[in-house]
Design a protein around this nucleic acid. Structure first.
Length: 351
DNA sequence: GAATCGTGGTC
DNA sequence: TGACCAAGATT
């Protein structure tokens, strides 16, 4: 039996039961694929169920408010995914009569859908012969065929695609793609793969050459950028000021308290005298800063050091910024917020 | 084409 | 405990 057939046989015995495998509804398959980008199944699963419950079809998602979609996404990370999810739902409704096109290239053009996701939708929903090449598949191909030990990234990616295409040959695209991904996810795992029980280890380049631990080749770690956010807790009449992060930066389209950024963790005196702070208030000298909380949140490429400050001020103090939203203290949770704000709200009573 | 974009689990 | 990394896409 060829390797592909063995993997399919393995899949029939070992496949997990997952909700998006019970359907061929392109909407549900698309939704699951967007959620699962760079995200573990255990983390994405409850989000998938919530989305299906709130937005059972593409039309309901398209007609929802951005804030609602983002709030449902809150905690999943990589928030441009949520924005692109919403965009694509509107395109499907307005340009495709609420139906995903059974066409790889048309799917690929949709926002938030790259080569992997387009192949996943094309094969899982329409059984079209496009091999999925995700992290699981690359890891398996790298080990089994010894790919990625040399050559440019471009040529390595090309080899992955070629090998996946060869393996798929004339097998059922939907079944084969699910099988090879699941094999990577459960058997050929990143760390300490269970080679002892592997049914195809004798054909595996990495196993035969004692390279399982060094394939695929790891990319050198990137340095994290440290950033220092100073959040201001401003309260009046039982309401708290928040703002939307609209600038082109991390956590875009989420909400947070008014803030200024500094080069490092600063004292209240420094902050009060800073230009950014003084631009916030008409009478900055009539304000008082008291530390409320300090949290550190590690993101994929940045470490956020968040200082929360209670700000006391004259009731008639004017604010220079008009884009602040005054929200009743208990209603902040209606807005999508970053993980560190969520964490803060759990531990600290605002207002 | 390298850098960027979150969060939580694992060892 | 800190580094690694998980069903990638975008610029």
């Amino acid at each position: 039996m060829v390797v592909s057939q063995k993997i399919i046989t393995w899949y029939r015995k070992n496949a997990r039961i997952l909700p998006w495998r019970k359907t061929r509804d392109p909407y549900r398959i698309w939704l699951s694929e967007i959620i699962l980008q760079q995200t573990r199944v255990t983390q994405g699963l409850p989000y998938y169920n919530n989305f299906i419950q709130k937005f059972p079809n593409v039309k309901s998602l398209a007609s929802a408010q951005e804030k609602t979609v983002m709030k449902t996404w809150q905690g999943l990370g990589y928030y441009t995914r949520a924005g692109n999810l919403h965009k694509t739902s509107k395109i499907i409704v307005n340009q495709y009569n609420e139906k995903f096109p059974p066409d790889y290239n048309a799917i690929l053009k949709l926002p938030g859908i790259g080569p992997y996701t387009a192949a996943a939708i094309a094969s899982f929903a329409f059984n079209l012969p496009f091999p999925v090449v995700d992290g699981n598949v690359k890891r398996f191909l790298s080990r089994y065929f010894g790919i990625g030990r040399s050559g440019s990234i471009f040529s390595v990616e090309k080899k992955y695609l070629e090998k996946a295409q060869q393996m798929m040959s004339n097998l059922e695209p939907c079944l084969f793609n699910q099988a090879i991904m699941e094999f990577g996810a459960l058997q050929c795992v990143p760390r300490n793969p269970v080679c002892d029980s592997c049914i195809i280890k004798h054909g595996c380049f990495a196993f035969n050459n004692n390279l399982v631990g060094s394939l695929p080749v790891r990319v050198p770690k990137k340095k994290l950028r440290s950033r220092y956010f100073n959040y201001f807790l401003l309260c009046r009449n039982g309401k708290t000021a928040i703002r939307k992060r609209t600038e082109d930066d991390i956590l875009k389209n989420l909400y947070e308290f008014p803030m200024i950024e500094t080069n490092r963790r600063m004292s209240s005196a420094f902050i009060k005298n800073s230009e950014l702070y003084r631009n916030l208030f008409r009478y900055p000298d009539k304000t008082t800063l008291k530390p409320a909380e300090f949290l550190v949140q590690r993101l994929s490429h940045q470490v956020i050091h968040a200082s929360f400050w209670n700000v006391a001020y004259k009731e008639r103090n004017g604010f220079r910024y008009k884009n602040w939203i005054w929200v009743p203290a208990g209603k902040i949770s209606n807005y999508p917020v970053p993980g560190m704000i969520e964490k803060f709200l759990r531990h600290y009573k605002v207002g």
